[in-house]
Design a protein around this nucleic acid. Sequence first.
DNA 1: TTGTAAGCGTTATCAG
DNA 2: CTGATAACGCTTACAA
Lengths: 325, 325
Amino acid sequence: MATIHDVAEKAGVSVTTVSRVLNNRGYISDATRRKVFGVMEELNYHPNEIARSLLRKQSNIIGLIIPNVSHPFFGELANDVEFFAHRNGFKVLLCNSRLEPAKEREYIEMMKRNRVDGIIMGSHTLEVGDYESLPYPIVTIDRRIGESIPYISSDNYRGGELATRLLIDKGCRKIAHICGSLELDLLANLRTDAFESMATRSGIHHLTIQTDMDVFNQEQYEDMIRRLFREHPDIDGVFATSDIIAAFAVKIGRTLGKRIPEELRIVGYDDVKAASWLQPSLTTIRQPIREMSELAVELIRKQMEEAPYERENILPVELIERDTT
Amino acid sequence: MATIHDVAEKAGVSVTTVSRVLNNRGYISDATRRKVFGVMEELNYHPNEIARSLLRKQSNIIGLIIPNVSHPFFGELANDVEFFAHRNGFKVLLCNSRLEPAKEREYIEMMKRNRVDGIIMGSHTLEVGDYESLPYPIVTIDRRIGESIPYISSDNYRGGELATRLLIDKGCRKIAHICGSLELDLLANLRTDAFESMATRSGIHHLTIQTDMDVFNQEQYEDMIRRLFREHPDIDGVFATSDIIAAFAVKIGRTLGKRIPEELRIVGYDDVKAASWLQPSLTTIRQPIREMSELAVELIRKQMEEAPYERENILPVELIERDTT
DNA sequence: TTGTAAGCGTTATCAG
DNA sequence: CTGATAACGCTTACAA
């Protein structure tokens, strides 16, 4: 693979000159410029970004750590992050932690060694201290860490309120909330707070169940929801913390012969694309994934440029009513 | 950020020695080894992989170019590719081409400049020549390019046969096939060949419609399928080329009051996770995404090591019968 | 068992 | 307008 020296030699100029035409810096005569470009073409020369990175101390890489890209929410997030990263001249290194602390830690180490320009953290299995010592820009999705690291989330408390109120307003008598593991220190837990507070305040029968850490074990959902309906056959409203879980609730509810939404109302969360093509389509709380992704990249960039930025970034959610309520 | 020089100085040894303990090469006394490790800890030293890459001419990065990670099929593929890449010591650079040739070309250029160790191509909007000139290992998913580049696909023809035969065997009288744009030179087009050949042979009424290039415009699916049923109300079997499209067919069929599977039978493709949690769950042709991903990483590795490898890698598909037939 | 020095492919500085 | 040369942080002959 041709280097800048090969080009310089063949073009009969110095490497400095080649570098200049490459970066369009300083004065160069049109003749040499043309000559150099010609030789580059001829040698099929591609500047080595690794060498550039070494010198500039900038890799133009953003690390994205999430639990699992094959989960629709994170798939859409990753897609959007990549889009905005690319638009800002960054590449994206994809890391799936699978919510294993060891893997998450290893990925963070790897990113340090690779001198990424910043990390977007969407997986949170470690302690606060593990993150605070990081030597470069971080942005956190859905978790508040320490005093200085900026975080992005949607308005989880409000989302919980909207969902719960909708179920109550529609006349539900006993509502269940299915959330993720509350042991993880996530802002998403505010949804649960909102649910319990609002349900309690309105004096409605309610209960909350947690999925375990292995978010990607789908059978877990089935068993859990089946048990829920078995133990509480009178449940007529479910607020699930993701559209996937909601889809399982729909499926199992139907299997048990419950009419939706007449006998069982279900509200999901996220508004991933699937929510609208499911049958019945899901009522859900929309998170602005696109805006969150755009902001994440922007916050990395701002930290790199030492520009001012907001530490707390809470984006609005929206209730999307569809068939399941 | 500490460099190897800082460590050497503080430990009172040469950089060579530090490098040796780092890479565990050559003889070093236990005393200095301990000393050096201590200083590394103290200085919070992380070896700079960029410098290493420059020297070794190996980045340990695999580029993954796909249309869109938020599509379930590619999301699962990306997830698995990342898993196996990590296990083989590679990082993954994620690129969404959105099926725009300009973007795909730009990504390929970017990868050349960044000296990735190999590329897994799951997006195919360019001409064969654009790929053949690439200076490093490539693996292609679902497309055959030139004579030398290895490719991976599942047995598309067989998948088409299985789906079509199932519809016929179940007693369908008029079947429709919804495929992607046939202008793209994909092995997935074999599904269509199989459909048409088998339907023709058995003398059944049949027709094929193509979606346009913008695979990610979901409204397109709705309109297209609605029109299909309007123009051919007697269709009682649909073979869709993805589970997403199949899900839309289910949704619209239901809206039109057709009972599934009694009056309308539907077969999808891929067996993404959603296929099993949809309601009704989808009958589909399973592609072995995990195996395909593992093989993709392995083929990159083998090319790097100049080990022998198969050029043609066609993995078996499987019919998964669920509720929609 | 340890150290010196060259080189990986660029860019920046300084001098013509 | 152009060119030498010294970095960037690391590994690897070659020497000691």
